[in-house]
């Protein structure tokens, strides 16, 4: 009998908590998480906007412009393709070879520096790479690819962001 009396508050609390959870789920969680709004409260509180679907056949369009270039890295040689960027300007990029791997050094050279100094941000030997670059200083930023094979390799570079294209150097 004593055991039953000890458990009574716990049972009441459990039932109470379940009731609270059900009410909160109906009013807030279901509308916000799953766009299920049986009471209409979720819509009035603006919770259903989190699940608004993109209308099929919508005319939503990308605003970013993409630049691209296809370059040939001659067998046994290297080329450099650069962008002029101010400090903290950002560019995103993705490049891929037609076949085979290239040594790549993504780097930047500070504007006005004539000492030959440059800072490398990524060095690898791969057949593709994607990422983004935030210029740590104003200057010329870009890729040096070296082809150590005995066959020319083409590389397609797609990029976008804030920069002025310097091109091949």
């Amino acid at each position: 009998m004593q055991i039953h009396q000890k458990n009574t508050p716990l049972i009441k609390a459990t039932i109470g908590s379940i009731a609270v959870a059900v009410i909160v789920s109906l009013l807030f969680i279901l509308p916000a998480e799953y766009n299920i709004d049986p009471t209409g409260v979720g819509e009035k509180l603006g919770l259903t906007v989190f699940n608004e679907q993109v209308t099929p056949n919508s005319t939503k369009q990308s605003e970013d412009t993409q630049d691209f270039v296809v370059l040939t890295v001659p067998a046994g040689k290297g080329i450099e393709y650069k962008l002029s960027m101010k400090q903290y300007q950002k560019a995103t990029y993705e490049w891929v070879t037609d076949e085979g791997e290239l040594y790549v050094d993504l780097h930047g050279e500070p504007i006005g520096d004539d000492t030959g100094y440059f800072e490398s941000f990524a060095i690898a030997t791969v057949n593709e790479m994607k990422g983004s670059l935030s210029a740590p200083f104003e200057g010329s930023h870009g890729w040096y690819w070296k082809n150590t094979s005995d066959k020319d390799i083409q590389v397609q570079l797609i990029f976008s962001g804030d920069y002025v294209i310097e091109g091949l150097k």
Binding site: I18, A21, V24, E33
Partner: peptide, 20 residues
């Protein structure tokens, strides 16, 4: 005591939405 337990159980139940 009932209020504390109710609060604790409800908090655990609702936290599942945060894990999601």
């Amino acid at each position: 005591k009932i209020f504390s337990i109710t609060f604790l159980v409800a908090a655990i139940t609702m936290s599942s939405s945060l894990w999601a």
